[in-house]
């Protein structure tokens, strides 16, 4: 019984939150890694792209809510999501036409494109603040829990409760669907294959008649979808605040690099590696260990390796370790 109780605590505070956070990071890292693979630069504006997509979705969600439209037990934001993706797609393709294309034609060095993306980051950040302000926005509605802690206790008779929030399950389900569609697209369709060819060897791809502008445009549209879905899921699960989204850049980059920049499978693995390490290192293990260890060994302190505020340090430490021992990432990524 003690073992089960400990397991429930562990699932409630570590396994479930880390899984949904990992799925959000994986979606974000997929966007970064795709841009790196096709356009060959690290996009610093990715966090703010997520924020923009989420902002549009939030505004539409509020509008739907005011008209009385809802999605039953699921959050209304899911209905608004396609429109958010559409708006983000238009913004990204427009940005590419207005800004990035010029440097691509000039074959500018990757680091110049990174600096350009910093400029784009400023502008997107400004737009988001302009539209929705800097404060916290909560736009989650529908059923809050699939299983609440109290129901779980009554059902199982255990001392510890397990809460399963709708948003957590939703995150994982949506992420699985999105990733499945993405991999089907990349591996089975003609456009997807041409994208992979372009990523592997640009010159060869051009020789075989692949239209680079089309590949780039499709990439931006996919990235818009991934970024908006990741942003909305994160916002539903936690809350939306422009600055938090900017800060997500670091764990997202860490996930992409850990998995191997340019490798989609690696981005997913990286997302979960980063999320699980962040949560386990900053979790206070006292409760779990009290259940699992014999009484004589029960810990006095919180058994927290690091305080919660150091979660950035965790993503960073993983990043450094991987860079030092396996510079191309866990799955073989590109190295320039």
């Amino acid at each position: 019984m003690d073992f089960l109780n400990g397991l429930v605590v562990l699932a409630n505070f570590v396994l479930i939150p880390a899984t949904s956070y990992g799925a959000q990071l994986a979606l974000g890292a997929l966007g970064v890694t795709l841009i790196y693979g096709i356009l060959r630069f690290s996009n610093f504006a990715h966090g703010d792209t997520m924020a923009f997509g989420t902002t549009v979705t939030i505004l539409l969600t509020w509008w739907f809510q005011s008209m009385g439209i809802n999605f039953g037990p699921l959050p209304t934001a899911l209905l608004a999501l396609p429109f958010g993706i559409l708006a983000t797609g238009l913004l990204l393709v427009g940005t590419d036409r207005a800004v990035y294309r010029f440097y691509r034609r000039k074959k500018a060095a990757p680091v110049i494109l990174v600096i350009v993306s910093v400029g784009v980051m400023f502008i997107m950040n400004g737009i988001v603040r302009f539209i929705i302000g800097v404060g916290d926005q909560n736009f989650s509605d529908g059923e809050r829990f699939i299983i609440s802690a109290r129901d779980f206790k009554e059902m199982t008779g255990l001392a510890e409760g397990l809460a399963l929030r709708t948003t957590q399950v939703l995150t994982v389900v949506v992420a699985v669907i999105v990733v499945a569609v993405l991999f089907w697209f990349l591996n089975k369709t003609r456009t997807g294959k041409s994208m992979r060819a372009f990523s592997d060897n640009e010159d060869l791809a051009l020789l075989s008649g692949i239209n680079p502008e089309r590949v780039v445009m499709v990439t931006w549209l996919i990235v818009a979808g991934l970024a908006t879905v990741a942003g909305v899921l994160y916002g539903l699960d936690k809350s939306f605040k422009p600055f938090t989204y900017f800060q997500l850049l670091l764990p997202i980059f860490a996930s992409a690099v850990v998995g191997g920049l340019g490798n989609p499978l690696g981005a997913i693995a990286g997302g979960f590696v980063v999320a699980f390490s962040e949560v386990t290192v900053t979790y206070a293990w006292k409760k779990v260990l009290t259940y699992w260890l014999p009484e004589s060994l029960a810990p006095d302190g919180l058994v927290q390796l690091m305080s919660t505020d150091y979660k950035f340090a965790v993503s960073f430490a993983i990043l450094i370790i991987v860079l030092l021992f396996k510079p191309t990432g866990l799955f073989k990524g590109q190295s320039v």
Binding site: Y36, V111, V114, Q247, L250, L261, F316, L319, L323
Partner: peptide, 14 residues
Amino acid sequence: SDYLAIATLGIAEI
């Protein structure tokens, strides 16, 4: 160069 950028971004936050 990208790695230096990401590493410095991280160390600043830390």
